[in-house]
Nucleic acid binder design. Structure first.
Lengths: 344, 344
DNA sequence: CTGAAAGCGCTTACAG
DNA sequence: CTGAAAGCGCTTACAG
């Protein structure tokens, strides 16, 4: 097998200098059109591809982005949060559309995940995805900032204003969800999900939830908020804990679809009818949501748009352009788990 | 901000030559232990990272693998087959464990997807994933072979023996599924899934299915096989087409869970009880399977193991070691959709 | 419009 | 054990 063709091989065949080959392949108008075409034809024939290592080394950028998905260490190893997978899909596509490659890596929150992609010149910037413990996160972000790494983070706005965060409007989403439940005449709505600063996304959803309740003139009962992380089993446990409290409630707003599905299982097991006895509202609109029984009414995060915006903002950051944090609006997807009709 | 440190900076600080720095950082026993440690300490302090572009250019390998996920163009854009996502997770982990990075790309089957990762020295090898149309595939694989690209392909064994394929044993899986249905006293089992050479994985499952039926002394009724690709809506359509035939049947073996879930929806809509009237068997054991109602009995493909084996074989290929195609055994996951007890 | 030359930051024979 | 030097394959000022 002939070893890989280089620009010198092409130069030789075309009877020009290697510099001219390089220019021609980058389609520089500097080189004579005819020569350019001839060179490009030869390159194609030899199946020549520019060596990225060489060109990246020379130009000092990699045309590659890195995506770090930070998994909750408590998560089942094999089951990645479907919401992230959906984001992964849209980020991959958006990256490709911009002519960049994407390096993907899953990281345990516990590990030393800044992962050095940019330091080692493998990526021009990093996208961070993860429902992790934000307090844990913080000092790692600090380090990234110190190192002048280009990165964007998916999620709630960060207290550190230098961190560029892109996320869906969790506060608005939380309001939307609870307003819908209230409109269905539910009066006592439990919230399943961590409400501490450890998961600011869940917390913002909770705050939106509370605001909707207050706006209706009701009181927020703190006993109806049960911590849960975004897994089915955590949702199952949280719903059981809620039931064990023996406080009456007629609706559950779960901070994620996975939690909602776990809660659904717990309620069924205890003989509680959904949505007749208790309405369940999810969050995310992951594919499973529409297959649940009853199908899950939920707040949809537009992952398609989110992926595009993440990539776009990261590229701006890399190019040194102005960017500011963005909040993407969410919308309600009404299915069956909250009842489809207004009750009276 | 100081620009990125290079090995020369470290050499300067350590009072040694750049060559020695390079050796020390690769932990070469050639350099004096004390010197080595001193250099490593300085590197750490300066937050130095080897420039991958430079080292890759020099060594002519990238320590990177590429994963190409070939999507069925008919697939809903936003909904990637969950089975692939699960594979993606395990491949990412396996790759990281081997000290390699992973470049991920989604490709429409129609596009020019050999994607040149290896040609441009961005990756040392490629993993191909996709329930695509294999006939379409074939000539692209041919091209990869011609170019001497290192690649492994997930799926059925390929007629071209030079193509290294790793896959679950679809024939055995198909037998397993149908044997279980027969053991549940089902006698007329429909198969939903393409049975042509266009999707050899489905075809092998179908052949396994047929073999189980014949082993039982029953006859295979070709009218009970309906084409479907691996999407929920295709399963829905196929089940409707099956019902429209007005041939009685008491079980469906769907070539994938997604098809099974679509079929489930169709049956429910027509008032057919599952599993009382019709049992449904899926394939893959994607996360949704356990949340379906009734939960789906299915054939599990061990994605964890599969990812590891794919990566391992690809690395062997890259290193020029001996490798042969592998068939990974599947196992049955019994849930509720086929009835949990033997009927008599 | 084209070529000769420098240089990106490494690794690794070669010489000592 | 260490250093001087070559060279991986490009891109791009510089000169013409």
């Amino acid at each position: 097998m002939p070893s890989k063709a280089t620009s010198i091989d092409i130069a030789y065949r075309a009877g020009v200098s290697q510099s001219t080959v390089s220019r021609a392949l980058r389609n520089s108008p500097l080189v004579n059109l005819e020569t350019r075409q001839r060179i490009q034809a030869i390159a194609k024939e030899l199946n020549y591809k520019v060596d990225k290592n060489a060109s990246n080394l020379r130009t000092q950028n990699s045309h590659t982005l890195a995506l770090l998905i930070c998994e909750d260490p408590t998560n089942d190893d094999s089951m990645i949060n479907p919401f992230f997978l959906s984001m992964l899909g849209s980020i991959t596509r958006a990256t490709a559309r911009q002519g960049y490659d994407l390096l993907v890596s899953f990281q345990q929150l516990s590990s030393d995940w800044h992962a050095d992609y940019e330091d080692s010149n493998k990526a021009d910037g990093i996208i961070l995805l993860g429902y992790g413990d934000y307090v844990d996160y913080a000092h790692k972000l600090e380090k990234l900032l110190q190192q002048n790494t280009h990165f964007v983070i998916w999620g709630a706005e960060h207290n550190n204003k230098s961190v560029l965060s892109i996320g869906c409007d969790n506060h608005q989403g939380g309001m939307l969800a609870t307003q819908h439940l209230l409109n269905q005449n539910r009066k006592t709505i439990a919230f399943l999900g961590d409400s501490s600063s450890h998961s600011p996304e869940f917390r913002d959803r909770y705050f939106g939830h509370c605001e909707a309740i207050k706006a209706k003139g009701f009181l927020v009962n703190k006993a109806l908020q049960i911590d849960a992380i975004s897994t089915e089993s955590s949702g199952f446990d949280a719903a059981n804990a809620l039931l064990d409290k023996n406080i009456p409630f007629d609706a559950i707003f779960a901070a994620s679809d996975l939690i909602a599905i776990g809660a659904l299982r717990a309620l069924k097991k205890r003989g509680v009818q959904v949505p007749e006895d208790v309405a369940i509202m999810g969050y995310d609109d992951i594919p499973i949501a529409s297959f649940a029984n009853p199908s899950l009414t939920t707040v949809k995060q537009n992952t398609q748009l989110a992926g595009e915006i993440l990539v776009e903002c990261l590229l701006k950051l890399i190019r040194g352009q102005e960017v500011s944090p963005m909040l993407i609006p969410t919308n309600l997807v009404v299915r069956q788990s909250c009842g489809s009709q207004l009750k009276s």
